[in-house]
Design a protein around this nucleic acid. Structure first.
Lengths: 328, 328
DNA sequence: CTGAAAGCGCTTACAG
DNA sequence: CTGAAAGCGCTTACAG
């Protein structure tokens, strides 16, 4: 890596002059400017961050870990974080875990190398996360329940959301309700929603079915439901998120089943496309963008004002679309 | 901001000891470790990046600007960039322009404050972009055609894609084809695709219609098409992207029109949901993820090997779905 | 307009 | 185990 000293040598001047030219400060002859710029370019100079007098340290960044930016849910949160952090003059650094706990730990290490002011993390599983316990900067969990190591969190009540949407489906007259889910190991949200489903089934005196876990492979395009459908003959399916619900609907159609004529489908998240499509998707809408904003605000508050860590829970809301049919 | 010196004072030891404790290097008594950690926590210490001996400078980052992370197209590119850059040991810093040229300039400035090794930019308009011309690090345009200031670019041939999908719709027997678009000012992709539409119409001896520009306001959920439909009575609509196409389909249904029974619809991008929905969306599929990977690889090549800037054009592909009806 | 030099916050041999 | 001191790459008064 080239240093100011080397450029100075190449340009035949002093280190101080190089510094001034490159920062566009202080006076410099046109001739000098040309020679210095040229030498810097030739040597491929990239400045190292200086700690010298007066220099305000390079502006602060926060690190954000999400499972996948291509999931609209996390994209929406990310947009919220971005928005709030920019307003506060912070940059936003992102990393993805791809729903893989070991990638997750690596991604956080990479984030840490940038010495962020703080972190906002959506972990596969906050309890068991391998994210190294060494000195972490202030951290807020997003979408994970708080744990002793990470006491600050912004969440929704996924258990209750699961209970409520199951109740909605039950009240529409369904009884054979199947829960189709992403892998629990990589999403405690999916697991909590499933627990909510179980609770609602039990309180109605019905035996909850085992969940069908679907591996996320680059999307849910070729989801296979034949076995599960033949075995359980569900009249309704609750998917652990909207993207998966779309995959389920598509798979049902490939089986020759209509939605909601033959099978009803409901999801979670409230992605925009669910409302645009026809029939529109019944879902539990989550305030993804607001959660991002809230997590960012909380992180700033903790980092700048040394506030206490706390757990903020935002509200969800049922969106009644057209994919759940009223039976009887 | 607390310094090592201040912590040393508070902990009653030397600066050297504090450094060793905080970095977990060298020996230190348990007692010392406790006192130093405590002092560091109390003062809210955050390390400044050091340039001292041996210390490798904090690992490199690149800056990425996209119009919006919530658009699946850019999310896919971003995932590709992320993937490639992580493999190269680079962090990825993101910013959004929200399709606003003046926000764009600010977002790039913010990115620059982090002293990135390079930039990958998707600009509203590369020709007129207000991104300050001051010393930029190596830069690759993504989705914008190269211009003198930015000679490196990864694109698809949007003009040709526009021509080809229009030809496809024409060959299905349509003649009154309307082009519905996002704002041209914020997307030269939309404009180029429209030019392609015009070319295809003209080569068939038809008069192209004026495009209907739709403002992007937090999604395309309440898109208004009544006037345009009454005026032009199109049998087919080409939307400048898939997200917009979904909005168009939804708007047509609100008008009581069926797709593709009454009006055919086609889009651009090939988002996953287009293939999941029913009827599935006819579209020009763009290699968004690959474009991100390619842009990242090109940037690394330019930054590390001082390679020449160049223009890489990846291929698109027609996806024949069910939203374009064969007439006659 | 230019350079010698002090100083920034940090790390790390080298003594003790 | 701990500290005094040299040095990292950089910036910026201060002289000339």
């Amino acid at each position: 890596m080239a240093t100011l000293q080397q450029i100075a040598f190449q340009a035949g001047c002093s280190l101080a002059t190089v510094s001034r030219v490159l920062n566009g400060e202080g006076p410099a002859s046109d001739e000098m400017v040309r020679r210095v710029r040229r030498a810097a370019a030739e040597l491929g100079y990239r400045p190292a961050t200086s700690t010298a007098r007066g220099t305000s340290r390079s502006s602060p960044v926060v690190g954000v870990l999400v499972p996948s930016v291509t999931n609209p849910v996390f994209a929406a949160s990310l947009a919220g974080i971005q928005h709030r952090m920019h307003a506060a003059g912070h940059g936003v650094l992102i990393a993805q875990s791809n729903y893989d706990p070991s990638l997750e730990a690596k991604a956080v290490s990479a984030l840490l190398e940038q010495r962020p002011t703080g972190l906002i993390l959506t972990l596969c599983n906050a309890q068991t996360s391998e994210v190294l316990s060494a000195a972490l900067p202030p951290t807020v969990l997003l979408n994970n329940l708080p744990v002793p190591r990470f006491a600050a969190a912004v969440t929704v009540d996924n258990h209750r959301a699961g209970r409520e949407i199951t109740r909605h489906v039950l009240q529409s007259g369904h009884a054979r309700i199947l829960y189709v889910s992403g892998h629990f190991a990589s999403s405690d949200r999916a697991r909590l929603r499933y627990e909510g489903y179980r609770a609602a089934m039990k309180e109605t005196g019905l035996a909850p079915l085992e969940s069908v876990e679907i591996r996320f492979v680059d999307g849910y395009e070729h989801l296979e439901l034949t076995t599960a459908i033949e075995r359980h003959r569900p009249t309704a399916i609750i998917a652990s998120n909207d993207l998966l619900a779309l995959g389920v609907i598509s798979a049902l159609r490939r089986e020759g089943l209509s939605v909601p004529g033959d099978v009803s489908v409901a999801g979670f998240d409230g992605i925009a496309i669910g409302r645009l499509m026809s029939p529109s998707l019944t879902t539990m809408t989550m305030p993804d963008g607001d959660m991002g904003v809230a997590a960012a605000a909380m992180l700033l508050d903790i980092a700048e004002n040394a506030s206490q860590s706390r757990h903020l829970r935002l509200g969800h809301r049922l969106y009644v679309g057209e994919t759940v049919q009223q039976l009887r």
